[in-house]
Design a binder for these strands. Structure first.
Lengths: 230, 230
DNA sequence: GGTCTGCTGTCAGTTTATGGCAGCAGGATT
DNA sequence: AATCCTGCTGCCATAAACTGACAGCAGACC
């Protein structure tokens, strides 16, 4: 048996146990040495499996590694597909791919008739390539936001004057014509938003923002009065 | 990347395609030679994946492969949430509610950390109420499309001239300013599209369209050259 | 016939997997 | 305290596999 099939078998094996299992038991049932089993466990953990092991206990697989079957209504499927299509048509390559992957994963856990509904859905969003939204790699920014890391920004304001500042990013706004990075600006000591197409360059620091992003988001929502509430 | 993770990636990649994909494309996307890809396909087939390949065609993964997909990634969740927010901001009340319900159902099957990711996601879409998209209840149209029922349309063309016609609706296009109903018009005996805000009134008949909507959609895609391909 | 595609064989170089051994650490039991 | 069970890591030599390149065959389509 190849290693890749054994890893799948190991997942299935772990799912059948509710109580902790010793590594020795698992190794025997897979026909492999205890040393190899430890390596397999490490591999699965590296791939996202939430396997908890404790000395004296054994291993338990927390649910959530694999997608469980799901039920959605036809209209909910339509809403998801339409939204995913908008993302695919109007954002960037990374998000487009992520949207496609998400839909296919959801499709895989849907019953057959609903999967067909998802695949033949006929709500369309025209795809327009906009050359003017800038080449800034938003995936980097999204990642910094998720991790709560500060950014060093080289930015040009609306007059073209360049400034350098450190900000705590916490949100991205997808408007029709532009993308806006919203953050706490250490230069101005206030909330500021930055058009992505005016960011000249950007460095992700390894400094963690002291506050969580959703706290900053909540505070920002209160202070800012936009014509479009986001 | 190790082979076992690549095999999982390959399955996910195949899931995202509905049409046949060439082995060359898959090999490139996995960053591996074509020879290795053939071996990977063979390995997956040996493990039970129903991958069909035909000379001159490419590969298709038939649904129902025993292995459920892995959990959604953070970026996939972001894509879904962003899409749902666009739907909530830019469509109608029914779809908005459906999008919210879909997200909460997805949240219910996510492990705690990913659920938190979904709930505190900070990709925003501004909500603008547009008064000019018409008051037509698109939920009725979507339902007719799903069920494959014909519509009797009281429509005003761009000169304002009213016409009455029976159409087979099969798609809805969500453009930025307008929504477009796409159907086969029995009056003109051809594909036609109708701006939702110019539909004066509409009656859902109990006449079933003889062809499936995705067949009509596919035929329409071939014949129509739009500035925005949908 | 030409082209695109799937598919197989072979082979050498490289990488990875494997098991055994030793050792450390944490909790439970005695 | 002592002991046992367990998780976990480092090291190493051997064995297994993976990989890319090349060559070639076959089916479908134009």
């Amino acid at each position: 048996m190849s290693r890749s099939t054994r890893l799948l078998d190991l997942i299935q094996l772990l799912r059948t146990y509710r109580r902790p299992v010793s590594g020795n038991t698992l190794a025997q049932r897979l026909g492999v040495s205890i040393r190899t089993l430890y390596r397999d466990i490490a591999t699965l953990q590296a791939q996202g499996a939430d396997i908890q092991g404790a000395p004296g206990f054994g291993y338990v697989l927390k649910p959530g590694f694999l997608m469980p079957p799901m039920m959605l209504s036809e209209e909910e499927i339509e809403a998801l597909v339409l939204g995913a299509r908008w993302v695919a048509a109007r954002t960037d390559d990374d998000l487009r791919e992520a949207a496609g992957n998400a839909l296919s994963k959801i499709a895989a856990v849907l019953p057959a008739d609903l999967r067909h509904e998802l695949e033949t859905n006929s709500l369309l969003v025209p795809s327009v390539r906009r050359p003017d939204v800038g080449t800034m790699d938003l995936a980097v920014i999204r990642d910094a936001i998720r991790q709560g890391l500060k950014l060093d920004l080289d930015y040009a304001d609306k007059d073209g004057t360049p400034t350098t500042r450190r900000i705590w990013p916490f949100a991205l706004g997808y408007l029709e014509e532009v993308r806006i990075l919203i953050g706490w600006c250490e230069l101005r000591n206030d909330f500021r938003h930055f058009r992505a197409d005016r960011i000249n360059s950007l460095v992700v620091t390894d400094v963690r923002a002291p506050r969580k992003r959703h706290h900053l988001l909540a505070a920002w929502r209160k202070t800012v009065k936009l014509p479009h509430d986001m």
